[in-house]
Nucleic acid binder design. Structure first.
Length: 461
RNA sequence: GCGGCUAUAGUUCAGUGGCAGAACGCCGCUCUGUGGCAGCGGAUGUCGUGGGUUCGAACCCCACUAGCCGCCCCA
């Protein structure tokens, strides 16, 4: 192989290619329809429950997250994309900014900033957007990932603290997953009590852990120190006996918290939403109180089996310097939801193939354009584009070829993309007609331009 | 942040020290206004990047980068 390297000087130096940075990725057109479906279904379902969309900034003051999510959490202590925004004037201080690792804090910040509590009414807000965490990428875990979330928040007089709200939110999630066709989801929930309950429990837990800590694995020893609650949901086999003997949060709930939780469960029962109470379900974010929950799924996610998580945050607004505004919310891992659906679609297609039916070709057919316009030579290019313009204005989906293409190539391309091919040669242009061939039937007809739309609508396929 | 596995054509992958390969896809021709089928032909490429060992490296060694799997954590 002799590549002409003699004029090496003329050869452009190979430039290093730039790739999407670690943990981020592109979603190409073969992916985005499913994403849009997941999102538009969310919008439709949430609207039925009276939710409105909120869009908050993608970056915020760093202290918003350290104050809400919690200084000691992994998210804040080592997983945030944070940078110092430079001061624009000598009198100004540099501000620490952070790409949002989650959206609840930003939504509550907006609630406070816009004094939404002053309206007196319950706020039901949902959002769809990217979040950022500097974790090691893995299946279902990316550094830029998408969440679909919702928050119900308001002054106590708006009923924001009612267990009805908890149950409604969970029922909405169940309906959403069902409507998307997610199979085999499992709802686990628990109550972690109010702030006082949690404080008392934490003290008791530390006391109980002190004498047995040495016998646990290093991870749990560290947790016992930094965040004792998290010892409870450790999966470490060796430590299970110790963990099972630890105090249970249920025994530390105040009467009010206990009653609240009971009412949530009663409402779920009434709605027929299946659930599993998991006394060891503890969520990592500092702001959670009382009801906490997650939905898990067994298909497609590997060990990242949590599809969504959420809970109450009755004290969050006050943590951020706002008025008392109890609330509850959730965040769906959209990337994980998509992975789950893709795995389940693949499974269904495999089953369908075995059963002899042909889903795949139906999907393909649904995606095809109405027509492909093939100018037979460059002389018809302008006329082809004009025809496309007219038909697109009528709502048809059209692709236009190029007069330089050989007819064979036009047919090949057209058959891949569209249901009809429209041939536009000198004859057609002169006689104001179009030759239309329908791939499904193989029939071909010369149709006057004026009648084209009418005829096209009558042709099947 | 830690551990394991992986990286070769557009895609899926084979190639374990001696000429860079297959299938699918792509392009061309058979066939210049009628495609799908078939036949023939063609291009696939920094073998992830950089270094080392060797007469010789896609192959062995080291480092880096990225992906996957697991841990941690979380959606």
């Amino acid at each position: 192989m002799s590549s002409s390297n003699q004029e090496g000087a003329a050869k452009t130096q190979p430039r290093p290619t730039i790739k999407a940075v670690r943990g981020t990725r592109d979603l190409l057109p073969d992916q985005t329809p499913l994403w849009n479906h997941v999102e538009s279904t969310a919008r439709a379902v949430f609207a039925r429950y009276g939710f409105g969309e909120i869009r908050t900034p993608i970056f915020e003051d760093t202290s918003l997250f350290s104050r809400s999510v919690g200084e000691e959490t992994d998210i804040v202590s080592k997983e945030m994309f944070t940078w110092e925004d430079r001061a624009r004037a000598a009198s100004e201080k540099a501000q620490s900014l952070t790409l949002r690792p989650e959206s609840t804090a930003g939504v509550v910040r907006a609630y406070i900033e816009h004094k939404l509590g002053e309206t007196g009414s319950l706020q039901k807000l949902y959002y769809i957007g990217p979040q950022f965490r500097r974790e090691r990428p893995q299946r279902g875990r990316y550094r830029q990932f998408w969440q679909i979330g919702a928050e119900v928040i308001g002054p106590q007089t708006s009923g924001s603290e009612s267990p009805l709200r908890d149950a409604e939110l969970l029922e909405m999630l169940a309906s959403y997953l069902d409507e998307l066709g997610v199979k085999g989801w499992r709802l686990e929930l628990n109550s972690v009590g109010n702030a006082e309950d949690r404080t008392r429990f934490n003290v008791a837990l530390r006391e109980a852990l002190a004498p047995v800590r040495e016998r646990m694995c290093p991870d749990n020893q560290r947790r016992a120190e930094t965040n004792p609650l998290r010892v409870l949901d450790s999966k470490e086999e060796q430590d299970q006996d110790i963990i099972n003997a630890l105090p249970k949060i249920a025994d530390f709930l105040s009467d009010a918290s206990r009653e609240h939780f009971a009412q949530v469960l009663a409402a779920l029962d009434a709605c027929g939403v299946p659930y599993h109470v998991n006394p060891r379900l503890v969520r990592g974010l500092d702001y959670y109180t009382r009801t906490t929950f997650e939905f898990t799924v067994t298909t497609g996610l590997g060990t990242q089996n949590a599809l969504l998580g959420g809970g109450r945050y009755d004290g969050l607004s006050e943590m951020l310097g706002g008025p008392k505004a109890p609330g509850i919310g959730f965040a769906i891992g959209e990337d994980r939801l998509i992975l789950t659906l893709q795995a389940q679609i693949e499974e269904a297609e495999r089953d369908a193939k075995q059963a002899g039916s042909d889903i795949e070709s139906q999907v393909e057919k649904a995606r095809k354009l109405d027509a492909y316009i093939a100018p037979l030579s460059a002389g018809q290019n302008a006329a082809a584009l004009k025809l496309a313009r007219d038909l697109r204005k009528e709502g048809l989906t059209i692709e236009v070829g190029d007069g330089s293409f050989k007819l064979r190539k036009s047919f090949d391309t057209a058959d891949k993309l569209a249901r009809h091919i429209m041939l536009l040669g000198e004859d057609e242009v002169a006689s104001h007609t179009v030759t239309v061939k329908t791939f499904a039937t193989g029939t071909q007809e010369r149709i006057p331009r004026e009648a084209l739309l009418k005829v096209l609508r009558m042709i099947p396929g």
